[in-house]
Design a protein around this nucleic acid. Structure first.
Lengths: 215, 215
DNA sequence: GAAGAGTATATAGGAGTCCTATATATTTTC
DNA sequence: GAAAATATATAGGACTCCTATATACTCTTC
């Protein structure tokens, strides 16, 4: 595994590459934020809350999903509350806790700011269908590893969902099955953040992953 | 291309996935920053300057590489200057301009903070050699597209370098050649940010890329 | 059933990021 | 040599982000 000079591990170069792509995504987020009056962190919180239903999330959960400290999450939640984009509701049965729920106003701003194009779209546009699918599987693997290591909260991915049956069908284009919607779907349709996600228990998560990998 | 429900484009899910991995990398950067006393942005600037030699970079260039506004770059450069991690030297021949150069102190802090492991390493550890190589190629494609679109400054990648000859050798394990070190190397050794990079002119960049893609 | 331990959130305090708009000092161009 | 362009700095302001700690509950345990 000789390299031209100053050998770096491939993981180091992958990190560099991911970081460049990440930079483009940050620029996208700022552009998106200009129209809305909310900065990227605030948009990230609303995005997180969107589709989690009326139950909302606690402050601590939001912090974990954003990868920031709890006081930082409180800061940003307060900023959004001032702007009437969300509200804190008392949690029934625990008077210390709070449920953070987006307002209709907040969801409208979020929706309006979603242009759907930008630098991330440009970058992904360099890839053909096959490469996109491979990238999706690669990212899912990486995210799952982070979950298993308990470095990030469980994401709402198909591969950790109770409703997911990998390679349940013979059809190579649509081998998987989702019991929630009771329909077959393909590798490229795997979800990273599905609002109908229902976390499976650890044992069946592991079994599902094995079946997914073997398929 | 039916999906279980609420069909999202695959690009949307890829963006989500990249964003999760990016979050893990941000957490890494904060962890790294704790020991050093420099925050992630400051470490990013030093990383950028490291290996660019005594010539350094201008404020505007640094801003472009970080994807932030010029005043923001000035802010962070000043913070680093206060901490004696870099200095601003007058540019010979242009009295408006400045060359930002890291100090030995700054480089030492940078080096000391580089643990080499962390969440990014964990995530990448879920991949086998083949997947890592594919991911590297995918990222290079994406980054190149962003460069071509002039969304980000030219990165110091092999595929835009004057010294790079793609598929110059019959050896499938080491098909490429670097004229700077005059050695053959493989796909998985492609650089994302090589300090010996020498940007080729647009015409030969395009020709090199075509040859690289065809190979 | 009252300490004590643990958990959920808020506050305090402070450095620094990040923006837009604008000022200052030079080059460069016509 | 005036106007246009360029390189950086300043001003002003909203917030992010941290650590440490306070406050208010809830759960455990003797």
């Amino acid at each position: 595994m000789e390299t031209p000079r100053n050998p770096h591990a491939i993981t180091e170069r992958l990190r560099e590459g991911l970081s460049r792509v990440g930079m483009a995504m940050r620029i996208d987020e700022w552009n998106r934020s200009k129209a809305s009056g909310l900065n990227p962190t605030q948009l990230a919180i609303l995005t997180l809350l969107e589709g989690r239903g009326a139950g909302g999330l606690g402050v601590r959960e939001i912090a974990a999903h954003l990868g920031v400290s709890q006081p930082t999450a409180t800061d940003s939640i307060n900023a959004l509350e001032r702007k009437a984009c969300l509200e804190k509701r008392p949690e029934a049965g625990d008077r210390r806790a709070v449920r953070v729920v987006p307002t209709a106003e907040g969801l409208a701003i979020l929706k309006a700011s979603d242009t759907g194009d930008g630098l991330a779209a440009t970058a992904l546009g360099a890839l053909d269908d096959r490469e996109q699918e491979d990238l999706l599987l690669t990212l899912i693997k990486m995210i799952r590893r982070l979950q298993v290591a308990e470095a990030i909260p469980v994401q709402r991915m198909c591969v950790t969902c109770r409703h997911f049956s990998p390679f349940a069908h013979a059809d190579a284009a649509r081998p998987h099955h989702c019991h929630f919607v009771d329909a077959a779907f393909g590798q490229r349709d795997l979800r990273v953040d599905c609002r109908d996600h229902d976390e499976a228990d650890p044992a069946s998560r592991a079994a599902t992953w094995d079946a997914f990998q073997a398929g």
